[in-house]
Amino acid sequence: MRDIYFELLTYLFHPALQSDSYTKDAERVSSVTRSFEQKRKNLIRNLNLDRKVKRLEDTEIYAELSQAKDKAEALMRRYEFIRGVKNMSREWSCLNPAGVGGSDTKQYFVWECGKVGGKFKKKMAQYNLVSFGAGFEAYEAEWESPVTTLPSPLRKAFWRPRPPPHMNFVRSDSDPELDTSTGGGSYNFRLTGGKVYVIGWKLSCVWDGVSRKPETAPVIHLDDGDDNFILSDRFSVRLDTSRPTSWHCWVTFVFQSSYRFPDLKLEQRNMNLDDSNTEWS
């Protein structure tokens, strides 16, 4: 108990417990340490008097110390996790394509950025719980577009061309259910609940005709400068429709309510989708 007590005194200096958003957690740790200071003089005597039925683990103060330690360490792990995300590279890369099903003309392309590939832990209603190590947990949304194609030459000649299709990860305060497509050309994963931080994303497709014309490899576009939507509350990518294919997307995210650490100066870039991307027909 003395070891836990001294650890908790040290934890109180950690920036995670000095955040105004987690004052109750810090107050709880302080309260438990004060309680231990008041009771420890009599702990050994009480245990000796009742050693047949009492164990250290059964004492109320031991349970309080252990619970406070677990909660404080969980909070500090969240701090260290999001600090690592803030400091990581935000560049995205395209993995080398490989043949699909023995075909020389069909290639598999994968684009990645940030924290991706977490270990699956639990299936939830709209997304999966994943882990990037002990105590470093996040969520992963996954969805797929139908096969995308360019408008016919006749439509291009006589109708106003539609904007290029996007895959969007957005949050909604009003939609009661998950909406993975709005029809026409915007393929949305619409998440209900609190605000989020995107911490990573992955996009993939099978592309036809690469070997015959290498210059026709797929090209994607992100309109978020150098940040590539990392620590944003959404993700949006413009798709290449020069070949018919289905696009698969994964977005890794955490909820902002669990990462309120002002000293990290997390970017508050909460954006709305451009109307032109959400009302296609």
Rank of each mutant, 00 (worst) to 15 (best):
R2L: 13
Y5F: 14
L8H: 00
L9G: 06
Y11M: 07
F13I: 01
S19G: 03
D20R: 05
D25P: 00
A26H: 01
E27L: 11
E27M: 09
V29D: 02
S30P: 00
R34Q: 07
F36I: 01
E37V: 04
N42Q: 07
N42A: 05
I44N: 06
R45S: 00
N46E: 08
L56W: 02
E64C: 01
L65Q: 04
S66E: 03
S66L: 04
Q67E: 12
A68E: 00
D70Y: 00
E73K: 08
R78V: 07
R83Y: 06
R90M: 13
W92M: 08
G101I: 12
G101S: 12
S103K: 08
Q107A: 12
F109M: 02
C113S: 06
C113M: 07
V116H: 02
G118N: 03
F120H: 12
M124Q: 15
Q126C: 11
S131G: 08
F132R: 09
F132E: 07
G133L: 09
G135H: 06
G135L: 03
E137M: 08
E140S: 10
S145C: 05
S145V: 04
T149G: 00
L154D: 10
K156D: 06
K156F: 00
A157Y: 02
R160V: 14
P161N: 10
R162T: 13
R162G: 07
P165T: 07
R171C: 11
D173Y: 11
S174R: 11
L178A: 11
S181H: 13
S181Q: 15
G193T: 14
G193P: 09
G194E: 15
Y197N: 13
W201M: 13
L203W: 04
W207M: 06
V210Y: 14
S211K: 13
R212V: 10
K213F: 08
A217I: 05
V219S: 09
V219T: 11
D224Y: 13
I230Y: 05
L231S: 01
D233Y: 07
S236W: 04
S236R: 10
R238Q: 15
L239Y: 09
D240E: 10
P244L: 05
T245C: 15
H248G: 04
C249K: 12
S257Y: 07
S258H: 14
Y259S: 03
P262E: 02
D263S: 12
L264G: 11
Q268K: 15
M271N: 09
D274Q: 10
D274K: 07
N277H: 15
